[in-house]
Nucleic acid binder design. Structure first.
Lengths: 329, 329
DNA sequence: TTGTAAGCGTTATCAA
DNA sequence: TTGATAACGCTTACAA
């Protein structure tokens, strides 16, 4: 790998001049510019971005922390972010937090030590306080899927509680009274908020929410199925199931059939997120839209603006969930 | 951010000694070791991995190139890789190639310039020749989902042709004779191989494969649906549809219902990949198992062994597809 | 076992 | 507009 030094030698100019033509940071005579360019071509020169990063303290990299690398939800988010950033020649380095405190912290340390210019964080376990503290550090952050008042201008969030409320209200309006809830893990904020919305809707309808109506799943398909097993074996009667996310809803629908109950006809099912295949299930899934891709896009724009001073159009930081009506209710 | 220099000062030892305790590269007296550790704690020292990377020419980072960041298939692959690597304290930097030559090349350049110790590549457009050339460079590579004879010990692949063959044969054995095929994009090797398998199975059965039996999709759900629209509006009769992947199969099943055709009962549908939600569709999807997560795992092991000289158990480089029988056929 | 000092490939600050 | 030269934060001979 040729270095800037060899380029300068071949071009017959100084290191500084080569550096200048690389990043147009100052005027260089056309003559020299051409000499340098030619030398670069001749040598097949590629800048070493590690060295650039060390010297300039800028990496043009944005670190992303997600819970999992698979999962349609995070996939959408990463895509939204990467697309926007790439348009401005910024790159993305992704790390998985596996929904546990240790990996999330370690992931963030890694990203920081990698000299990332900024971080986009979708943390599951990190406390608000930790995030607030982190935001005071020298690496700018953007928090997705959580609203923290103290750093609200660094948050891109959705009102999960309202989403849970909307879903439940829709079910109630259809005349259902025996609802069960397959919730996400209690350790996750969004799951709790969605559940809170569920309870609130019931309360407003004069219904009480008993603990046995709630099953704590893990956001994966299997736990949607397990929840159905649980409710049925426990002899809990229900005509509608409100799910913490689409994946669990899909698992639940599949398992309902095993018990000869048809989703939609016998039991209404509603999901959350509106992931891409929600429109392709049978029956197609009624759900709450979580515009995560768009939110990823906004997170990226926020960074473009704050960190790189790039002019972007208005940034939206707070999103409202909305109902997507299909056939499963 | 404190540097190694400040640590050495506070601990009253040299830079070299601090460096030695950081990476246990040589003997350091217990006394000094403790002094250094204490100093690090007191300062909250964090090594700067960019500097480490520049000085040591090792980054402990493995670059991954995938087509898309979303998509269950790539998600599984990334997860398989990351899990294995992380166990050995290696990190992953991911970039998307968007299935086009330019982005794929640029992604690889980026990863190389980022000082990645090795690359795991799931390329769609890059030619075999390019990959062979790349493999001669100083950054080791592993190619997933493609078998290139010239660099076969760097490939982790699946016999896609055989998979297409198996799927088709299974359908034929059920007595179907009017098949259509929803293929992946012609520009992708795996799609072509699967289609070749389809044709071969037909041929062996004495059936001819006409061009109009084949629809070229893009591996997304929508194109599975579009394919059904196409076949039906073109008046092509069929009782079975062989799909290039699960997503298109799911899109196709959903669309079939629009035409009052029930998947499985009226029309058999078979997918490819066995992604996680294939077991949760209705009817559940019969498909070909593509053990991509496991293959990602093997790719990671290959790198652990070749690049870091870590002892791993046997590495499997060639995989055979297998049929997963469910309800859609 | 420890320390000195020369890199690693850039950027950035001064002078010229 | 150009060129020396000192950072950037760490590793690694080589010496002691």
């Amino acid at each position: 790998m040729p270095t800037i030094y060899e380029v300068s030698k071949l071009a017959g100019v100084s290191l500084a001049t080569v550096s200048r033509v690389m990043n147009g940071s100052a005027k260089v005579s056309d003559k020299n510019k051409k000499k340098v360019r030619d030398a670069m071509d001749a040598l097949g020169y590629r800048p070493n971005s590690v060295a650039i990063s060390l010297a300039s303290k800028r990496s043009n990299c944005i670190g992303i922390l997600v819970a999992e690398l698979d999962g349609v939800f995070f996939g959408s988010m990463m895509t939204g972010i990467e697309k926007t950033l790439r348009n401005h020649h910024k790159h993305v380095v992704i790390t998985a937090g596996h929904s546990n405190d240790f990996d999330e912290r370690e992931g963030i340390e890694f990203l920081k030590s990698r000299n990332c210019d900024a971080l986009i964080i979708h943390a599951e376990q990190l406390s608000d306080d930790y995030l607030i503290e982190l935001s005071k550090g020298k690496t700018p952050i953007v928090v997705v899927n959580r609203f923290i008042a103290a750093i609200k201008d660094k948050c891109i969030s959705l009102d999960n509680l309202k989403g849970g409320y909307l879903a439940t209200q829709f079910i109630l309006n259809k005349g259902h009274t025996k609802l069960v809830n397959i919730s996400g893990p209690k350790s996750k904020n969004d799951a709790n908020d969605r559940l809170l919305g569920f309870k609130q809707a019931l309360r407003e309808q004069g219904l009480v929410c008993e603990e046995h109506q709630i099953y704590e799943g893990n956001y994966l398909q299997e736990s949607g199925a397990a929840a159905i097993d649980h409710f049925i074996s426990a002899g809990i009667a229900f005509t509608a199931v409100v799910c913490g996310n689409d994946q669990m809803a899909i698992g639940a629908m599949a398992r309902l059939r095993v018990y000869q109950k048809n989703p939609s006809e016998d039991v209404a099912v509603i999901g959350f997120d509106d992931v891409s295949f929600a429109a392709c299930t049978f029956p197609t899934l009624t759900t709450i839209k979580y515009p995560i891709k768009e939110m990823g896009n906004q997170a990226a724009k926020l960074i473009l603006k704050e960190v790189y001073n790039i002019v972007v159009d208005d940034i939206r930081q707070r999103y409202e969930p909305s109902l997507v009506e299909r056939d499963s209710v």
